[in-house]
């Protein structure tokens, strides 16, 4: 068989060969970047999604390669040649049932793998002993009904609010007054080894919360509450995870960034205390001003 000269006969094939070469040259690049898989490493749910993706991706590539090889083989092997006679076949019921069932079986396997992995992705685990003491950072009581809270009902609850074009994070506390809750914009500070539950809402248009290394994205839809969770391993204390709004929310959608800075539980306690003090001072200052203005008006 003279496949190689034949393979270079048409411009189409020359270009295919060039493209294949280019792909081979790009592969080393790929080896050290997460070229073929999603981001992971920041949270167990991101890791589980990554594992699930790898399994599915391997199956998908096998199917794709099979189809491509069959296609290329049929095109090259059965290319019209002098004297060749096309077989007048109209179908083959057995074969057709066979590949229908085959396709269905692949999907059954996919479904099973997905359901097996699902719990690890959806259901939040408990915080580690080394995680932050929730009482000391003044967590609210009362457990929201979602898989993003671990079975014990104890996780660090953060309220995430999307608005054009900034994310606001509120660290809710256990008193009634919501005006003294520590909050921040763009950068969320969280303790490591602690399960963090995010309650995601939007104030104007639809946004989508996403830090790739901390797991999947969840939309912030006005009028709805969405939930997700992450739990950053202790080794990442001091690291910042980057992400941005993933649902078109207007002209500066591209600039609606989100950063999650992981700190040790001690640093987190200090952070909350400092934030709380700042807010208290600001509130006191506002109250003083209000009083002064009122007394000026009554004069």
């Amino acid at each position: 068989m003279t496949i190689i000269p034949a393979a270079l006969r048409t411009p189409a094939r020359i270009l295919v060969v060039v493209a294949a070469l280019a792909a081979v040259l790009l592969l080393p690049q790929a080896a050290f970047a997460d070229f073929f898989t999603p981001e992971d490493g920041g949270s167990p749910n991101a890791d589980s999604i990554d594992t699930l993706y790898k399994i599915v991706f391997a199956m998908a590539m096998a199917v794709l390669a099979g189809v491509w090889i069959a296609l290329a083989y049929s095109m090259i092997k059965f290319r019209a040649r002098r004297g060749a006679v096309p077989a007048q076949i109209r179908g083959n019921t057995r074969l057709e049932i066979g590949w229908t069932v085959g396709a269905a079986l692949i999907l059954v396997v996919l479904s099973v793998v997905t359901f097996v992995m699902l719990d690890d992705i959806r259901n939040a685990p408990e915080s580690d002993r080394t995680g932050v003491d929730l009482q000391r950072v003044g967590q609210p009581t009362g457990v929201p009904d979602t898989e993003s809270v671990p079975p014990s009902g104890r996780s660090l609850l953060i309220q995430v609010r999307g608005k054009q074009y900034v994310w606001q994070y509120t660290h809710a506390d256990d008193d009634e007054n919501i005006l003294n809750d520590p909050f921040s914009y763009e950068e969320l500070v969280v303790p490591v080894d602690t399960t963090v539950t995010l309650e995601i809402k939007a104030q104007d248009v639809v946004h989508s919360w996403w830090i790739p290394e901390l797991g999947g994205k969840m939309d912030a839809v006005p009028g709805h509450t969405n939930w997700t969770w992450f739990k950053i391993p202790g080794k990442h204390a001091g690291r910042t995870f980057r992400g941005q709004c993933a649902e078109l929310c207007g002209r500066n959608h591209a600039n609606m960034l989100a950063h999650v800075r992981a700190v040790t539980p001690e640093e987190y306690e200090a952070y909350i205390e400092r934030k709380g003090r700042e807010i208290e001072q600001a509130n006191d200052e506002a109250a003083r001003q209000r009083k002064r203005i009122e007394s000026e008006e009554s004069r």
Partner: peptide, 25 residues
């Protein structure tokens, strides 16, 4: 997932149409 089955059937049928034909480029 289910949509992949009839779609796959089509793809296999197309390749089988080329199979043992005399394919003119």
């Amino acid at each position: 997932f289910l949509i992949a089955i009839p779609t796959g059937v089509k793809v296999f049928n197309w390749i089988a149409t080329l199979w043992r034909g005399t394919v003119e480029y």
